[in-house]
């Protein structure tokens, strides 16, 4: 099993969910996070004092999939999250040697 983590623009979340649904992947966990990368932030001014806001709101999504589904899942995220401008986000794939469904106590590989 592999874990796919993707950090995407919040306004792209609906598109990404649609994209994942199309490849039959509709289980995921979402985090509201703040991110910082090459994307420039924006300025906010409160009573004449300027603040650079460079930690921007992002959505992180995680899903765990069998090894043979990794490529299409990653492909779907890339396609649906891309706008072509800086700040589109990143995808990280890592190993998950053990995954268990709580309801049945069984290994996820057997369940899926």
């Amino acid at each position: 099993m592999k874990k796919i983590e993707a950090i995407v623009q919040p306004f792209k979340l609906d598109d990404v969910r649609e994209g994942l649904k199309r490849v039959g992947m509709d289980g995921m966990t979402l985090f509201d996070v703040r991110g910082y990368g090459r994307q420039r932030g924006h300025k906010e001014i409160y009573r004449g004092h300027e603040y650079e806001v460079d930690l921007l709101p992002k959505v992180k999504l995680e899903c765990v999939v069998p090894d043979d589904r990794v490529d299409e899942t990653v492909g779907a995220i890339i396609e649906s999250a891309r706008t072509g401008s800086i700040g589109d986000g990143k995808i990280i794939v890592s190993d998950v040697p053990e995954a268990i469904q709580i309801r049945s106590g069984q290994s996820l590989e057997d369940v899926l």
Binding site: H42, K43, E44, V53
Partner: peptide, 13 residues
Amino acid sequence: ESIGLDITQHGEE
């Protein structure tokens, strides 16, 4: 529109 009126029109949140 994606970023919202608060930041784009008024520069605050």
